[in-house]
Write a protein that binds this DNA or RNA. Structure first.
Length: 797
DNA sequence: CTTTGGGTTATGT
DNA sequence: ACATAACCCAAAG
């Protein structure tokens, strides 16, 4: 029995056994529960507590002792008549480790312990609830106190044995404490009859959101059915609902406005994530304690760092969402994977400069939350001949940290590999597979970089300076959302004999970032290839496979550049100036797939075309609005003169040349009905409905909308007839760029689609994306004709 | 089975 | 009253 107090002790399994030998789990939980309900501002009045307690403890000193044992490993002595005063809190200076180390094996057992304890409690109390959950629960107890909980095995000699026990556990089903206050639970047939209310909506609570995030983290997106069916899945929603909610959540998280960006160490609600085990434990505790989870704060503590017991600590740290007093300075680790309480940085590093020839690998580094820490697989200084690899680095949230697989200085002959870097959300961090300085003969590869959302971080596979003979490859870079970050596979300066390849870069949405496979300056004998660059939507970013200046003997290839919609960005496969002997395999200006062509400059930093181009939004907004109006029109049969006001139009905000200035998404309507990709359907619908003759106005505010040639080409053939039909709706007012349309006759008259094509203007300075950008702006804004390819935008009645 | 589109409801302005 | 967001259902893929 532990007797000595010491700082940062942990509540060990031995302690648990000690407690359980002495007290019934129900008693323990009751005490904790009562204490947790105790006003936080109040100093514990043990006498008062004991008077009211339902734990069965009648002695205030004993009550206090139990608490202190749980919270601070205070010794469980038998002498309750001790002479030390009750209000002596001196021992409370010695708190337990907030996140004690728990072995990977014992974690599920802890969880199981809680379940069993919960079961015992609910059984003993025989709550008058109707339904019960019955399931065999196999628990592998190295050291535990199962005999008490099962109430059937009563041989204490088994105490320290390692046994595997299967409990027939029957748990009373209890209502989830997750329902928000505004929601009633009456939906699911509480009283035997009325299932009739088929559409009782139930708002998603914060906790449900977090649970969903955790579930997605565990099962991945798409397995909604499995989640919904999952036995211990806490969310009682259908698969469809899960899916829908997830899309909503993603949007939310992607908006970056929901307090998800934290500068400090504290965690806000939306990004707290839980693993399934955590959730299970948490839920079990909820049930066991019969209390809302948020009340598990260490009660009565003035020091928020203090906690009640180890398991409580874990729970607390997972529950930073609503417990304002808990400072989650120590990010939670996935308990089943790693030991709890590991330091902030979940790193697999070989930073030791002394060591040589080290291979460091990290598999499945999956911290739940990385708020300010860096997840790094790195080797820092002067480590020759090293190989570092990281597989499946899947942080759920990286708020301000950098996920990095890098090697920084003077690392010759290194191999850095990162596979499946899948951060769910990177808010401001940089996901980088890079090597920076003077790294000869290196191979850097990253496979499956799939951040779901990158807000302002740069996803980069790069090599910057003076790196001869390097191979840089990135496969399957698929960020779902890149808001302002740059996805880059690049090499910038003076990199001779390099091969840069990027395969399957498929960002779903690139808002203002530049997706670039480029090589900029003075790169002789280089091969740059990009395969399957398929951004779904590029809002204002430039997707570029380019080589700009003085690059002789280069081969640039791009296969399958298939942007679904390029709104204002430039997808370019180009070589601009003074590049002899080039055989680009992909000619942009002649392909249907790339329409909105902006000559890419040499500088990556300057390729953020966003400049005032949110035509996308305009188009979408207008389309959507018109659609809706049309709907109304057709519904009413009238011809209302409705206006689509500028609310639906995203105004042109000239963006600066630097990436940091191109956060177009900020100005975008938060909701495009989630139909970015599919909105062309709306187009079709609009123009294809000849029945109505709405006199609608789609106001343009200065800037004209843009629909790229790819859109036109992809859709126009299909829509062609419909477009013709659409002539019958001349009252619809949409701007049009009559710029060398492939179907000029049609486009000119329909007035329903703005069409603009930008042919790259060969300038004297191919580096100047700024110039290019401004040209685009000019084209867009002033509708000035560049190369005669763009005409004045016109409004039609 | 999941996603998508549309309708409905709730909430904010 | 209107606009938007959130939710639910049904159909499409």
């Amino acid at each position: 029995m532990p007797e000595k107090k010491s700082k940062q002790l942990t509540f060990s399994q031995i302690d648990a056994v000690t407690v359980s030998q002495r007290y019934d789990p129900t008693t323990v939980f009751t005490v904790l529960q009562e204490l947790s309900h105790y006003p936080a501002w109040k100093k514990f009045d043990w006498d008062e507590l004991v008077k009211k307690t339902s734990s069965g403890i009648s002695n205030a000193r004993e009550y206090q002792m139990l608490w202190r044992h749980l919270a601070y490993r205070y010794s469980l002595h038998d002498d309750f008549e001790a002479d030390d005063p009750m209000d002596d809190d001196s021992d409370l200076d010695y708190e337990l480790e907030p996140l004690p180390s728990i072995s990977a094996e014992s974690t599920p057992e802890c969880s199981a312990c809680v379940k069993v304890m919960m079961a015992s409690r609910t059984l003993s109390e025989s709550t008058p609830s109707s339904s019960t959950i019955e399931a065999p629960l196999t628990v592998n107890f190295p050291v535990c106190h199962s005999f008490r909980t099962s109430r059937e095995i009563s041989d204490p000699s088994n105490l320290m044995e390692q046994t595997s026990i299967t409990f027939p556990v029957t748990v009373q089903r209890q209502t989830l404490p997750t329902v928000s206050s505004s929601d009633a639970l009456e939906t699911k047939g509480t009283v035997g009859g009325s299932m009739a209310s088929k559409r009782k909506r139930k708002a998603w609570s914060e906790e449900e959101d977090n649970q969903l995030r955790a579930a997605v983290q565990k099962w991945g997106e798409g397995n909604w059915a499995n989640m919904a069916k999952g036995d211990n899945f806490p969310i009682k929603r259908s698969a469809t609902q899960l899916s829908q909610r997830w899309t909503t959540l993603r949007k939310k998280d992607g908006s970056g406005t929901s307090g998800t960006v934290n500068s400090g160490a504290t965690v806000t609600t939306t990004n707290t994530q839980y693993t399934a085990e955590q959730l299970a434990t948490r839920h079990s505790l909820n049930l066991a304690l019969d209390m809302p989870f948020k009340k598990l704060t260490a009660p009565g503590m003035t020091d928020p760092g203090r906690t009640s017991m180890s398991i409580n600590n874990q729970v607390q740290s997972r529950n930073t969402t609503q417990v304002s007093t808990v400072r989650s300075s120590v990010p939670l680790q996935r308990p089943s994977q790693q030991a709890c309480g590991s330091p902030v940085k979940p790193t697999a590093t070989s930073d030791n400069p002394v060591s040589r020839c080290i291979a460091s690998s990290a598999r499945e580094i999956k911290p739940a939350n990385i708020h300010s820490g860096a997840q790094t697989v790195s080797r820092s200084n002067a480590v020759p001949n090293a190989a570092s690899s990281a597989r499946e680095i899947k942080p759920a949230n990286i708020h301000s940290g950098a996920q990095t697989v890098l090697r920084s200085n003077a690392v010759p002959n290194a191999v850095i590999v990162a596979r499946e870097l899948k951060p769910a959300i990177i808010h401001s961090g940089a996901q980088t597979v890079s090597r920076s300085n003077a790294v000869p003969n290196a191979a850097i590869s990253a496979r499956e970089l799939k951040p779901a959302i990158t807000h302002s971080g740069a996803q980069t596979v790069s090599r910057s300076n003076g790196i001869p003979n390097a191979a840089i490859s990135a496969r399957e870079i698929r960020p779902a959302n890149i808001h302002s970050g740059a996805q880059t596979v690049s090499r910038s300066n003076a990199v001779p004999n390099a091969a840069i390849s990027a395969r399957e870069s498929k960002p779903a949405i690139v808002h203002s970032g530049a997706q670039t496979v480029s090589r900029s300056n003075a790169v002789p004998n280089a091969a740059i290839s990009a395969r399957e660059l398929k951004p779904a939507i590029v809002h204002s970013g430039a997707q570029t496979v380019s080589r700009s200046n003085a690059v002789p003997n280069a081969a640039i290839s791009a296969r399958e550049l298939k942007p679904a919609i390029i709104h204002s960005g430039a997808q370019t496969v180009s070589r601009s100036n003074a590049v002899p002997n080039v055989s680009p395999q992909f000619k942009v200006s002649q392909t249907k797939n790339v329409a909105h062509l902006v000559p890419a400059g040499s500088s990556m930093a300057k390729t953020s075309i966003s400049a005032g181009l949110h035509s996308n939004q305009k188009v979408h907004s207008n389309v959507t609005s018109v659609k809706e109006q049309e709907k109304r029109v057709s519904d009413s049969g009238s011809t209302p003169k409705e206006k689509v006001t500028e609310k639906n139009v995203v105004h042109a905000v000239p963006a600066g040349s630097s990436l940091t200035k191109t956060s177009i998404s900020a100005g975008l309507p938060s909701d495009q009905k989630d139909k970015h990709v599919t909105s062309m359907k709306d187009h079709e619908k609009i123009v294809s409905d000849p029945g109505s003759t709405p006199k609608e106005k789609v106001k343009e505010a200065g800037a004209s909308a843009l629909i790229t040639q790819s859109q036109i080409d992809n859709k126009q053939n299909k829509v062609g007839l419909d477009l013709d039909k659409a002539k019958s709706t001349p009252s619809m007012k949409v701007l049009e760029h009559k710029a060398v349309p492939q179907n000029p006759g049609r486009c000119e008259e329909q007035g329903s689609v703005k069409n603009s094509i930008f042919i790259p203007k060969p300038t004297g300075n191919g580096n100047s994306n700024l110039n290019e950008e401004s040209q685009v702006q000019n084209q867009d804004k002033k509708a000035s004709s560049v190369n005669g390819s763009s005409n004045q935008p016109s409004k039609q009645e």
